[in-house]
């Protein structure tokens, strides 16, 4: 049986409308980043059913050093961030 792992996901940009700070998301070990985003969206929609599909689909997960690939499998508890489309500068 696949063990669940808990990821701490920090909110940035437009996600701050739905949750401030860090949200813990529990997924089966080996879940892809796509799976994690889906789980995150489900959790956020409990309080905010209006959460935009487009925001989730265009956002990426990252750690402090890099953006994670779409199909990258996650097997350990991690501190991550959810990053919407960017507009700095």
């Amino acid at each position: 049986m696949t063990q669940p792992i808990t990821l701490s996901i920090k909110m940035f940009g437009a996600f701050r409308k739905y949750h401030q700070g860090v949200l813990e998301v529990t997924v089966p070990s080996g879940s892809t980043t796509s799976d994690v985003k889906t789980a995150l969206a489900t959790l956020l929609r409990q309080e905010h059913p209006q959460l935009n599909d487009e925001l989730i689909s265009k956002s990426v997960l990252a750690d402090n050093q890099r953006v994670l690939g779409t199909d990258e499998a996650i097997t350990t508890p991690l501190a991550l961030a959810i990053l919407p489309p960017v507009c700095g500068g």
Partner: peptide, 8 residues
Amino acid sequence: VQGHALCS
């Protein structure tokens, strides 16, 4: 503001 989607 709308932005540019990041990529791995």
